[in-house]
Amino acid sequence: MDPLALLCNLYGDGPATLRRLREAGVGSLEAIEEAEPERLAGLLRTSVRSARRFQVEGHLLHERTAAAVEGPSAQRGKEAPTDPLLRKVLETWRRMDAEDPSPADEVPAPAEPRPEVGGPPREESAALPGTPLDGGCLDGLDASTVRCLSKAGVATLEGLARCDALATSRASGVPYTHLLRLQLLARRSLPVRPASVPEGAPSSPAPSARELLVPSPPPLPSRPRLRPAHLPVPTLPQEEQRFSPAEGPSEPLQGPLDPILGRQATQADPADDPAGGPGEPQLGRASKPDDPPESAGPFA
């Protein structure tokens, strides 16, 4: 399948889009990137905005396929990304690093943003201390698969959980869908906070490109605040304080005697009234005077 055909299948109208593009002389992903968005929109029969998005997807696919051809070493050796978005993100990070020499300097800052698609498996995933992969630690992970993965640089459970599935599949020869399943199992088996995070690392993850470029709204408080913080918390008077029915009233309340039971109606029997105490409105159950007692049973 031609990469342009792949792009048309993924983000276009399949063979119809492919035929129109080829008839117009746009026969490769490079030509897609170089085409004017207005002209491309006419060919795709979409809006200019959709045509720009098509170009971005074509660019990403082109990078992905180029990475597959050049190999992981060539991809790692790239110093200056050509994508203006990536350049902008890198400049922003460098500027932030220069302005804020915080204790986060001890943590190695990422040299380049995490690629969204494609890219080789990260080497540090194998270098970090973690649970080593061995046959049988995951369902479907046998010794030969472990060997193939270790050849591709994935030697730990953490590395397997974080590696790029497609690139690792290409490098190791493990089928893609099988690797996806193993990755899912590896993620499940890891704790919520991975143990491989070095001490002193900031608790929040590194900002993504979207977070850096798009102004995000102010974060919502984790718990809704009911009253301003500077106001004192009001306290209820002692006699109105509520108590839990399990504990019972702290002091016996005085009230009229129940004519039927011959005891104080306010003294709640836990078997009869487990939901609330005296004077307490019962939640979830309507208190009707005609209701039969619960202990009466169906044959009463």
């Binding site: 399948m1 031609d2 792949l6 299948n9 063979p15 492919l18 597959a68 497609l166 893609y176 869908t177």
Partner: peptide, 14 residues
């Protein structure tokens, strides 16, 4: 994408 990467030109364009 994985099929295309694996089979290349053997995969039909359609």
């Amino acid at each position: 994408v994985a099929l295309q990467a694996r089979f290349g030109s053997l995969l039909f364009d359609t």
